[in-house]
């Protein structure tokens, strides 16, 4: 009887462990801080570095700060976040996700299929242990992340080249944008002089959105708009704690 109860309790515990699936966030920036750990300018700086890196190499690196995922394994969490956000380019599979769980004091570098050669598990583990961990222990999260990113960039920068000039997110001709522009031209030509200023402004914003996919509005110098390229992951990378 006792054994039965124990088994039952164990089964319930186990099923809880298995089913308590954490929320999988959608990444809209290269650096997503859901814990308010970094300052705005620190985030902006990371975004700028990672965007420049993608612009020159097409390799996508994303950083995610999360508070806790309870007892859920960080390996599954990181894999699911990376997969759902399509980090990396399609065909190259050159995406990397750096997850930091602040309360759980755990981190993981998840490496896309295409970068497992440039950044093998042993190297990822060494980056975590030697470059990032000492800073995290002193609660210097920004320095730790920067050290991690710097090492990741150093390891992966020779692996891929950016072969699309600027329009990295578009697969094909931007018909949508063109139709939009034609619509506006017809619309405002028909209306004559009225509302022309506003129309031009909208047109301008539509154009800038279409060309880089990064401008998010009027006069907002918001760097680091992230959108996944469709890379896939196979569970490569390493985890660590501090």
């Amino acid at each position: 009887m006792k054994k039965l109860i124990l088994t039952l309790v164990f089964a319930i515990l186990l099923s809880n462990l298995t089913f308590a699936q954490p929320y999988i966030p959608t990444l809209e920036r290269y650096c997503t801080d859901r814990t308010n750990t970094l300052t705005k300018s620190e985030i902006a700086n990371i975004n700028r570095i990672l965007q420049q890196f993608e612009d020159s190499t097409s390799t996508q690196i994303a950083v995610l700060f999360e508070y806790t995922i309870d007892n859920y394994p960080i390996e599954s969490f990181a894999y699911q976040v990376a997969k759902q956000n399509n980090i990396g380019q399609k065909g190259k599979n050159n995406g990397i996700l750096f997850v930091i769980l602040k309360k759980d004091r755990k981190m993981r570098i998840e490496v896309g299929y295409g970068l497992e050669g440039a950044l093998p598990d042993a190297l990822a583990s060494s980056i975590i242990r030697n470059d990032v961990k000492p800073h995290f222990k002193n609660l210097n999260f920004y320095d730790g992340v920067m050290a991690g990113i710097t090492s990741i960039i150093a390891a992966t920068k020779g692996e891929y080249k950016q072969d699309k000039s600027r329009s990295k997110n578009e697969d094909g001709f931007p018909w949508g944008t063109i139709l939009f522009i034609i619509f506006f031209i017809i619309f405002f030509m028909g209306k004559g002089g009225r509302g022309n200023g506003l129309g031009m402004l909208w047109l301008g914003s539509a154009l800038s959105n279409g060309s880089g996919g990064r401008s998010s509005g009027f006069g907002d110098s918001d760097f680091g708009g992230f959108s996944g390229g469709g890379g896939s992951f196979g569970g490569g990378g390493a985890s660590g704690s501090w």
Binding site: D121, F233, G235
Partner: peptide, 10 residues
């Protein structure tokens, strides 16, 4: 560790 993780993914 990496292999165990890849096994579970695959």
């Amino acid at each position: 560790e990496g292999t165990e993780n890849r096994i579970s993914v695959e």
